[in-house]
């Protein structure tokens, strides 16, 4: 697929405006067995989906600006009142009221902790992370949930202190813009494009 005519989308007046090509079809090929008998066919094509972040858009925009946003239930009648959610939840899972967005960058920078981790060489199609991937699941002071991410420097260990880094130079506007490094990592050790925010 040429990148020149790759499809782009804007939202204008509440409607999608599609420009460029979103799908490419190719001729199919027969699939035969060793005796030359027809078994089936291939069905090749490329296509692009679009996807809206809705109420989570501030979180993904925030990453590229070096911010880790969470949300908090401020409903005084809810048992979860005061709970801070990372992953960012638009609505409180208990009372379903709209949560308040809170900036958790400083909390994370003061030192988050690796709850568990995993190192794997295996990935699926479309992976863009360098291998092996070092998954880390990170706990924060005062947050009841445990965020999944990946470690960009060093080797993970349960209980190690980590701090967030952000792809602020050329953000992808996905969860990949957030990564983690051990406390006291030097800025020169960060992957290209990533900063401490």
């Amino acid at each position: 697929m040429s990148t020149n005519d790759r499809g782009t989308v804007k939202v204008e007046n509440g409607r999608y405006r599609f420009e460029g090509k979103f799908h490419y079809g190719y001729p199919n090929d027969p699939i035969r067995n060793e005796d030359g008998e027809l078994m089936g066919v291939t069905n090749p094509r490329d296509l692009t989906h679009v996807h809206m972040y809705g109420g989570e858009a501030p979180f993904f925009e925030g990453l590229g600006q070096g911010k880790l946003l969470g949300t908090r239930c401020d409903n005084s009648n809810c048992e979860a009142n005061g709970s801070i959610f990372i992953p960012f939840r638009i609505h409180c899972p208990d009372c379903l009221s709209k949560n308040t967005i809170v900036d958790m960058t400083e909390t994370a920078q003061k030192g988050a902790t690796v709850h568990t981790f995993m190192i794997t060489e295996r990935t699926g199609a479309f992976n863009t992370l360098p291998k092996p991937i070092r998954f880390v699941n990170v706990e924060f002071e005062g947050v009841p949930t445990i965020l999944m991410g990946y470690l960009s420097v060093g080797e993970p260990k349960i209980g190690m202190k980590v701090i967030p880094i952000f792809n602020t130079t050329n953000p992808t506007f996905t969860i990949l813009d957030l990564s983690w490094v051990p406390e006291e990592t030097n800025e020169t050790e960060l992957p290209e494009g990533y900063t401490f925010g």
């Binding site: 794997t120 992976n127 991937i133 990946y150």
Partner: peptide, 10 residues
């Protein structure tokens, strides 16, 4: 799809 899948698609 937003919070996990991009992490390695695995």
């Amino acid at each position: 799809k937003d919070w996990e899948t991009p992490l390695g698609h695995i």
